[in-house]
Design a protein around this nucleic acid. Structure first.
Lengths: 194, 194
DNA sequence: CTCAAAACTGAGTGGTCGCTCAGTTTTGCC
DNA sequence: GGCAAAACTGAGCGACCACTCAGTTTTGAG
């Protein structure tokens, strides 16, 4: 079971860093020391390997978020939003490869006609949007967040914003990391009750 | 000059819709009616064709935004922000293919070690961020936008948010189009002076 | 130790790719 | 109409790809 795991590890890094098409089975074979045939012994084909990786990434990410919420309590809904955003940014550093992979567009191309891929991506996004929505709903209940915003829609806007920043950080076009504080302040201004 | 143009047009659509690696010269040849050799007669190689396309996209997008700002005047800086955001969303529909292309990650991979690509992408993002920044600065001058936000950083956060939503719309994962109104309301809440 | 199942191997296969080039056709100026 | 330059052609090349398969090695229960 050693080779199967190291194939998974190496393939995750390569798919995330170079993309799906640009990563060859030969390269995975070379970097793991496993023969090419071994990869196909453990995984049906290249696409099956990717699906396995995506499935793992989904499990890891969802577990991380659930653990985070279980251990923490929050002074107010608005504080909860801030901490969920912060945790998202922290996690994007901790699980850099998984986030990088999730920002690769080949995943969304597969998702368009392959339900297994779509299901995994939807699970991740729903899970994350749910956490944001819970925080907003809590804030509206305790009065820290404006009552006139739609919790679900605002959660999705919030998520879009945070996820977009992580993506730009990975693209290395401008110093998105320097915007983390500004982002959190912006979220507070956007949500706080008058 | 007919074939050169139709190659450009078809390649733009294919690169944007299928990606760079997944689009073959043979396919471009088939769809244009031009022989494969003709593509290489007009463009140095596949990468050169992509660069030409990116250059065109940059020119188109920058021109569209400049024309928009030239013709319009705004009641306040905050209104200007709203209208710039709205125009961005409108343009993402009008120039769907160019926006789709701009959200393909192969561009950012090229940008990492090819200055010609990086220069084009930076030009686009700087141009757009500048428009947002101008609007915020105008709003701070006329008192419609809170004075305690950093104009550049907030412009980038704003841009990240709007661009992220367009991206999710293209990914077809959830109905991002339904969030356009919520997005604009969120921007106003985020920026308005107290 | 025995032996079958599980894990692993790598040369080989058919296919696709970007790109070249020797040659043909079209264009437009005199 | 003559003719050179520009535009265009497509068969062919070498490289690389995902994947197969017949055979070898390793593993672990009895």
């Amino acid at each position: 079971m050693k080779k199967k795991d190291s194939i998974l590890k190496v393939a995750t890094v390569l798919f995330a860093a170079k993309g799906f098409a640009a990563t060859s089975m030969r390269e995975i074979s070379r970097l793991t020391g496993a023969a090419e045939g071994t990869i196909f012994y453990h995984y049906k084909n290249k696409e099956g390997l990717l699906l396995y990786i995506l499935d793992q990434a989904r499990q890891d990410m969802v577990r991380q978020f659930q653990d985070f919420l279980k251990e923490r309590s929050f002074a107010s809904g608005l504080d909860m939003v801030e901490e969920v955003v912060s945790f998202y940014l922290y996690l994007a550093g901790l699980m850099e490869r998984q986030f990088q992979l999730l920002h690769r567009d080949f995943l969304y191309q597969f998702a368009e006609n392959k339900p297994e891929f779509r299901a995994n991506l939807e699970a991740i996004y729903n899970c994350l949007a749910d956490f944001f929505e819970q925080a907003i709903a809590a804030g509206q209940a305790d009065g820290s967040i404006a009552a006139d915003v739609n919790p679900r829609k605002t959660a999705l806007v919030l998520f879009t914003m945070v996820d977009g920043l992580v993506r730009f950080k990975n693209y290395n076009l401008y110093d998105a990391g320097a915007l983390f504080n500004e982002l959190i302040k912006s979220c507070r201004r956007m949500l706080k009750a008058n």
